[in-house]
């Protein structure tokens, strides 16, 4: 029981908050046909993140977010410029900019001493959920023992939900028919950049704990799982988060305890497990819908 509270609960809470943060905003991205934007952002912010940490130390949130934000903005601007100047299709422009930035980030990490900032490329990809455990503080309230990434995730989730609730009709209009929204002035000009910026911040916040792989999965898969079942925006969000949460919990326990059941000794990568289950759930969800439709007919 004690192990559950100290190890599993923080991991679960982190994963679920990452789901809330990424899954909510992810709905907008998927509806806008930008499912791979999260992947691009996750790759692009790495050098900024690392530079921030190198300058101000591992635990400086300000440095981390500032660095990541700068890198993210630089990457987006650069990709746009390349699209226009080199007349390259969007996918390729993104591909070049974001892999180059990521390569820079990895180079910085490996050469400047990963040990120094306690972040290694494997963690960047596959997350460090397993390292989030609760350390009961010697003195003072229990809050002090909560691992720091959980707070960042909580803030990210709050930002994500707030933006989505406040601007839901505008974001819906923008996702549904961007040209019309702009033509008729339904949507203020700052909304799109605001959405992209919030997505970037959420990605950065989630990155640390869950890694780029799970970030991409959380941004795209929950929404796609809900797609065949929801004919309105409200249910789309509800189903994506509900199904996502259920799968996250299952994934966590499978990764943590299945090896033990099979006689092995160490846990499997939680982020990877959750990602693959979320992805597998997408075609299954469509199959379920098809089966339900046949039964009704």
């Amino acid at each position: 029981m004690r192990e559950f509270l100290l190890l599993d609960v923080p991991m679960l809470v982190a994963a679920l908050m990452a789901l809330l943060a990424c899954g909510t905003l992810g709905n907008w991205l998927v509806l806008r046909k930008e499912s791979m934007t999260g992947d691009a952002i996750a790759h692009a912010v790495l050098p900024g993140l690392v530079a921030g940490f190198l300058v101000a130390g591992r635990h400086s949130l300000v440095a981390m977010f500032t660095g990541a934000a700068c890198a993210g903005v630089a990457a987006i601007l650069l990709a746009g410029w390349i699209r226009r100047t080199a007349r390259l299709e969007a996918g390729a422009a993104l591909g070049i900019v974001f892999t180059t930035f990521f390569a820079l980030g990895v180079a910085l990490l490996e050469t400047q001493g990963a040990r120094q900032i306690d972040l290694d490329p494997n963690c960047v990809l596959f997350g460090a959920l397993e390292t989030l455990f609760y350390v009961p503080p010697e003195a003072g309230s229990w809050i002090a023992g909560v691992p720091r990434p959980l707070w960042t995730l909580a803030a990210a989730a709050a930002a994500s939900v707030t933006l989505s609730l406040l601007a839901s009709k505008e974001l819906t209009a923008l996702a549904f028919d961007a040209e019309h929204a702009r033509a008729t002035g339904i949507v203020p000009r700052w909304l799109e950049p605001a959405l992209l910026f919030t997505v970037s911040m959420v990605v950065v916040a989630s990155f640390e704990a869950v890694g780029s792989l799970l970030v991409v999965a959380l941004l795209a898969c929950p929404s796609l799982i809900a797609a065949p079942h929801a004919t309105r925006i409200g249910p789309r969000f509800a189903i994506s988060l509900g199904a996502g949460a259920a799968i996250t919990v299952v994934g966590h326990f499978l990764a943590a305890y299945a090896p033990r059941a099979l006689g092995a000794h160490a846990a499997l990568n939680a982020a990877g497990m959750i990602a693959l289950l979320l992805a597998a759930a997408v075609p299954l969800s469509f199959a379920l819908r098809a089966a339900l439709n046949r039964r009704q007919a």
Binding site: F126, L213, A217, A220, L224, P259, G272, L276, A279
Partner: peptide, 28 residues
């Protein structure tokens, strides 16, 4: 081809599944 998924969604799903599976196997 699934309704509402599109090429971008398909890429994200495929990436998540296969790379996720890779992560799990690698950790093992």
């Amino acid at each position: 081809r699934l309704r509402g998924v599109g090429p971008d969604g398909a890429l994200a799903v495929s990436l998540s599944f296969f790379f996720g599976l890779g992560a799990v196997l690698l950790s093992s």
